[in-house]
Structures are given as structure tokens and as C-alpha cells.
């Protein structure tokens, strides 16, 4: 069973709550995905329109909440966002994401490491969203992060595991769970991530933007289970040349 901090998860599929057509679709898709951890964002309340009604139904379903620091551009803003979400949701779990560039949403490694150090010292369970940088992931582990969340490809791009060679190194080296976050656009890519030995994947856009998010949520659940089972079973080795699976002698040329 996957354990992050002091929490155990039977599902290795984490989901985001963004981009769904409405709250009903979001809740139905998350239920279908069997996800036990969902990400949320914090925002200044619009006094005229009120707040989203997503919190209560998620809490009622017993789903663990992982607020993020999206929108933060530096250490100060990320720490502020973490303090906000702790008071808001009563959780010390935080998805640390600092991406000042709005076009590619590339996480800033320097600000992220500095913020992670502060938040870990303050007792947060920090899950940092980072580029697939094995050196950075080790540094984040050293400052006390509960997991690392390297990206497969840019957020919401559905480009899959463009960083695969580096994800392999991170998975090999990491002493904390590795959650592949961002860019996973198809269940097959989630399977691949799990086959590589990732501990979990975080999927949002691929489910939310599907024509049938409930069915897609279910597909991702199956894909993650399959990939995990294949990893445990052990993949065969890859070779450059063919290796026969049937005997090639003793039939026609006796």
C-alpha cells in the first residue's frame, strides 16, 4: 500500500478537481476513478458570486485534500498560500508549485527548493511539483519533502511522459514516493508511468477534458492498477535483436 507521510492510500491515482464542466461531473469522475487524494486551489473569494460548492461533497466522501500553491511566483507567495490553505482546510498537506511563467508553467526549481525547506521546517507534508530533475528531487528529499512530483510534460498538455529517461533515474534514486504529475494525457501513459515504478500518478486534464469524464476516470483507475501490477510482476528486459520464443531447429531440418 502506498504511504505518504502518515497516510496510506489504496489507490495510486490522484486527481485534480480543475477544468470539469461542473461540480457534478467532477464528483462523479473522481468517484469513478477511485481516487483518494484530490488537489484544490485557493483563491480570493468573489463576494458577489460566492464560493465553489466543491468542498463539502469531497469531505463527505472522505477524500483527502491536497491544496496547491498555484499562482505563487516565489517563496514568499508559496509560503503564504500554504498558511492560507492550512487555516482554510485544516490540513498541513501542501502541493508546492511555483511557476512564474504562464506560458509553459515550468516550475521554478530555486524558489521551490527554498520554499520546501521552510514549509518542511514548519511541519508541512510537502509534495513539490518539479521538473523531472533527479538532482533537484534528491535535494527536495533531503530537506524533508514527503514525496516528489516530477512532471511528465507541461501541465495540461497531454503530451505524456516526455521526460521518461529522467523519471527512471528519479524513481531509481528516490527514498520517498514519486508521483508523476502533469502531462499524462492517456491511460496508456499512466500505465507506462506505473510500469516504470512510479508510486502514483496525478491526473487532471485528461479526465476533466474527456467527452465522458466518468468513463475516463474509470479507465485511468484500471490503467494505474495494470501498470502497478506489471511493475510488481517485473517487465522483461529490452534487447536490440530478436530472441526466439519458439525452437528454431529440429523441425524442417532434422
Amino acid at each position: 500500500m502506498l504511504k505518504i507521510g502518515d497516510t496510506e492510500f489504496s489507490s495510486r491515482l490522484f486527481t485534480g478537481t480543475g477544468k470539469f464542466a461542473d461540480e457534478k461531473a467532477m464528483l462523479a469522475a473522481i468517484s469513478a476513478s477511485s481516487s483518494e487524494l484530490v488537489t484544490l486551489a485557493v483563491k480570493r473569494l468573489d463576494l458577489k458570486t460566492g464560493s465553489d460548492n466543491i468542498l463539502k461533497p469531497l469531505q463527505q466522501r472522505g477524500i483527502k485534500l491536497l491544496p496547491n500553491t498555484a499562482g505563487a511566483r516565489n517563496v514568499k507567495e508559496a509560503v503564504f498560500a500554504a498558511h492560507l490553505s492550512r487555516e482554510m482546510l485544516g490540513t498541513n498537506w501542501i502541493k508546492l508549485e511555483i511557476h512564474p511563467d504562464p506560458k509553459y508553467l515550468m516550475p521554478d526549481p530555486i524558489e521551490t527548493l527554498a520554499a520546501a525547506r521552510i514549509l518542511c521546517e514548519q511541519g508541512y507534508v510537502v509534495l513539490p511539483y518539479v521538473h523531472a530533475d533527479p538532482v533537484l528531487c534528491r535535494r527536495l528529499e533531503e530537506v524533508g519533502c514527503a514525496a516528489v512530483m516530477p512532471l511528465g510534460s507541461p501541465i495540461g498538455s497531454n503530451q505524456g511522459l516526455a521526460t521518461e529517461p529522467f523519471l527512471k533515474i528519479i524513481i531509481e534514486q528516490s527514498q520517498v514516493p514519486v508521483v508523476i504529475d502533469a502531462g499524462i494525457g492517456a491511460p496508456s501513459q499512466a500505465t507506462r508511468a506505473m510500469e516504470l515504478g512510479a508510486d502514483a500518478v496525478l491526473v487532471n486534464t485528461a479526465i476533466a477534458s474527456s467527452a465522458d469524464p466518468v468513463a475516463m476516470g474509470r479507465c485511468f483507475a484500471q490503467a494505474v492498477d495494470t501498470g502497478r501490477a506489471a511493475f510488481i510482476a517485473g517487465l522483461g528486459s529490452v534487447s536490440k535483436q530478436a530472441n526466439n520464443t519458439s525452437p528454431l531447429t529440429g523441425f524442417l531440418n532434422v
Binding site: A41, K43, L45, T205
Partner: peptide
């Protein structure tokens, strides 16, 4: 005084 609330996000 500023009020913040939770919204959907990834």
C-alpha cells in the same frame, strides 16, 4: 480583511 476560499484546481 480578505477572505479566501477553495476552488477547483489541479
Amino acid at each position: 480583511l480578505e477572505v479566501f476560499s477553495v476552488v477547483a484546481g489541479g
